[in-house]
Design a protein around this nucleic acid. Structure first.
Length: 215
DNA sequence: CGTTCGATGCACT
DNA sequence: GTGCATCGAACGT
């Protein structure tokens, strides 16, 4: 005999990553987020993409981490519960989104640097358009670009990633080979190889940097 | 291909 | 006042 299953989506209820996923060593989360899907369900529509590039920022001893100066008003989310979003404004014009990791009181997070667009490409293109047309592979290429394509802003700071409207989910994406290298765009802590990306992927930012390592 | 540089707001010293 | 976890246009090779 065979059991009957609801036709509308096996595993649908368990697609969103649970808090336990984030309550782990940050470098593990940094690697495991590659291939997961960042989803923003907004009133104007759904936009989602496969995470293909991440960076770890770990603790007050990491000079590039926003927690390096100790607790401040801005970095408070880093000290909070794992699975929350840490969003901040960079260079006065770009929002960057992180997933908070480790345990509460232990400041660490994973920066999401690039996505492969999956759903809501028209919506992404509209949000990104500033005069010209943006190529599909470039829609969510770079941490400032992806937040713009998904419509994320400071309003999403401290948002719970284990709930709508902003979540990270397991959509059973085919496995990808991982590569590691130095983090990008920082002037300190460049000795740590805490940037992780899907090797050879077209949506990864600054593809010339870094090197491939066995998965 | 490569590198340089200006935009632009705010947290922190 | 200083310095950004960036981006894209402009310019050099």
């Amino acid at each position: 005999m065979h059991t009957s299953r609801p036709r509308t989506g096996p595993r649908r209820t368990s697609r969103i990553l649970p808090r336990a996923f984030y309550a782990r060593p940050t470098l593990e989360v940094t690697a495991d987020l590659i291939g997961k899907v960042l989803v923003h369900r907004a009133p104007e529509g759904v936009a989602a993409g496969v995470i293909v590039e991440t960076e770890a920022y770990i603790g007050e001893s990491d000079p590039a981490c926003h927690a390096a100066p100790g607790p401040t008003a801005r970095n408070a989310p880093l000290y909070g519960a794992p699975g929350m979003a840490y969003v901040y404004l960079n260079y006065g014009m770009h929002y960057l989104v992180n997933a908070v990791t480790e345990a509460e009181g232990q400041p660490a997070a994973v920066l999401i640097r690039a996505l492969e667009p999956l759903e809501g490409l028209d919506l992404m293109a509209r949000r990104r358009a500033r005069g010209g047309v943006v190529a599909e592979a470039d829609l969510c290429r770079g941490p400032g670009n992806l937040t713009r394509a998904l419509g994320l802003s400071l309003a999403h700071n401290r948002s719970d990633l284990t709930n709508a409207p902003l979540s990270i989910e397991d959509w059973a994406v085919p496995p990808m080979d991982l590569a590691w290298g130095p983090r990008i765009g920082i002037s300190v802590g460049t000795d740590r190889l805490w940037r992780c990306w899907a090797a050879g992927h077209r949506s990864v930012s600054r593809r010339r940097q870094g090197f491939v390592s066995p998965a």
